[in-house]
Structure formats: C-alpha cells, structure tokens
Simulated assay, not measured.
Amino acid sequence: MSDVTLTANGASVILHGDGEYQGPGIALTGIAGWYATPDPKITVTSRGQGDGGHDIAASDILYSARVVTISYRVLAGDRHEALDLLAQLDRAVHGLVTCRVTDQGQDTQCVGGYYSRSLEQKIQNPLWQNLSGDITLVFERPERLSVNGYTVQISAMHVAGGNVGLKYGDNRRNGLKYPLNYGLTLDGVGSNVALLTNSGSSRAYPTFVVHGPMDGVRLDFPGTQQSIVCGQTVRDVPLVLDCRSRTAELGGQDVSRQLSQRGFPTIPPGGSIRVVLSSLGNGFVDCTAHDTYM
C-alpha cells in the first residue's frame, strides 16, 4: 500500500502504508476515493416523446468534488505520545490541505482540500496505545496532479539593432539584397517554441509565468486556433496566466481586464500542445504542465 503525506499550514505528516509498519507513528490502513472517479454532475433532459433523453455534449460531462477517506491507526508507546501524534494530524484544521500519495512509481497529489477526522479508541493499555479512525478530505478541484510537473522555458525574440528590414542595394548597385535581415535574435541558446505533454488520463491545464521586461505578451498554440494576448506590462513582478481559471495575475492582483484574447488551451490526455512566444521583448516564459488524472 502507498504512503500518504498530508501538508497544511506549513506542516507535514506521513501516514505509513507498509503493512509491516510497527511505529511509533501513524499507519495507513486504507484509502478510498483516490483512484475512483468523483461523482458525475450532468444535467439531462428527458425526451417528451421517444425513449431516453436528449443527447449531451462531451463538454457537459463534468465531475463533482473529490472526497477522499483515509483510514489510519496511531501506534504509540504511551498515552502522551499517542495524543501528540493526533495533534500532528490536526494541524490540518483551518487550513488548505495537500494530499500526496506515492504508489508503485506513481506520485500524485490533490491540492486545496479541507480536513475532518473521526476517532475510535479500540485498545487502551498502559504499555501500548492503539487509536484508529478515518480522515475525510474534500477537494473542490477533483483532478489528481503529478507532483513533479514538466516545465520548459521559452525566450522572447528581440530586435538586435543595426541593419534591419529590407535592403534595396548597397554602395555599388541597387536592388533587393538577400538574405533579408529582420534583426530578430534570441538571447543565448533559448527558443521561442515549446512542447507541453500530458501523460495522464484527464485534460491538463498548463500555467504560464511571464518574466519581463516585456510590453505585453502573446502566446500562440499552433493547430488549436487559440491564442493568449495580454497587454499588461511586465517588469520585475512576473505575470501568471492560469489556464484553469482563465485569468491573468500580477503580484497577487487580478489583471484579466488586460486580456484581449482568452484562448486558454488544455492538453488532452496522452496528448501535447505546442506553445509559441510570438511577442518581442527581453523576457522569457516558464511553461508548466502536470500529468492529470480524474
């Protein structure tokens, strides 16, 4: 069985999934709702005449929050140690919880959940305390994301200066001079094109973090007829473009009003998208995607 790590309010606690774990610590005895899909939330309309209901679109197939139930057992040598371990678990109250499950090479997490816990005291012994119960976590964002995301950096092209544009001859003769020089260069060995992949089973929502200096940004996604265009000037504080919330954020402030094109893409399961940084500047963009599972 897998190990489970709960993180909230700056503290983490591990529930050990090894069936031979003897403590002292917290043993994981079961987990439900992690590999199952959440309940669907689909609105259907029955046919007034005819069998069944009206057809639904694939875009209407959505899911409710993910509810994860984790069964645990506290293994402690005395009452004081047992209560201390319970207190470690309860540091998740009043906080947003991240649940990470490592299982046979798959390392995924759900973020932004809330926590509650039940307790049943099965054995009370002066030499050994064995307390057990269930932890319930509710994640309004139901997707499971790979812990290690895939990040690639693309650089903006900029005009190098000097002899740029069309040239109609030199000092010796007139005519169009080849090759044409538009003066566009990249710093270092970077590229303004990237490929983002998703090896999961559900659509992934990439994020783009724009670092200046750039006077606005344009990201194109060839083959999708989608583009993100934001007129926000970026200097020392990065601009975050979130495809799940379809928003632009700068220094914690929503600047989505600066978006003139909102073609936020998703990455299909087992698929990929290309990203092209089409705007000029001296900055760069960090593009991040996670394998996503429902």
Rank of each mutant, 00 (worst) to 15 (best):
L219F: 04
L89D: 00
T29L: 08
Y293D: 04
D103W: 03
Q261K: 11
A27R: 09
V285E: 02
G212F: 06
V159D: 13
G52I: 07
Y35E: 15
Q258C: 13
E120F: 12
R100Q: 01
E249M: 14
Q49I: 15
I135S: 06
N174H: 14
V93Q: 10
G133Y: 00
C243I: 00
I61Q: 08
P238D: 02
V138A: 01
T224H: 04
E140M: 13
V152D: 09
T136N: 05
N174D: 12
V240Q: 10
R203Q: 15
K167D: 10
G52K: 00
G169E: 02
G252Y: 07
L259P: 04
A57L: 15
V74C: 06
L195Q: 14
Q258G: 11
Y178E: 13
R47V: 06
D236T: 11
S256E: 02
V13K: 00
A11N: 11
S199F: 12
G216A: 01
G25D: 08
P238Q: 07
F208N: 00
I26S: 01
N171R: 15
G149A: 08
L127M: 14
V4T: 06
G162V: 02
Q153I: 15
K41H: 14
K41D: 14
G23I: 06
S260I: 06
P40H: 02
G165R: 01
G113M: 01
R218N: 11
Q106E: 13
S132F: 09
I61K: 07
Y178R: 10
C243S: 05
I31Y: 09
A194T: 00
V159P: 11
L119G: 04
S202K: 05
H211P: 02
A36D: 15
V229P: 01
P213R: 04
S118I: 06
R117C: 02
S64D: 12
Q129W: 05
N9I: 00
V255K: 01
E143Y: 11
V237C: 10
Y205A: 07
D103Q: 05
T37E: 15
A32I: 12
R173V: 14
G105L: 08
G271V: 09
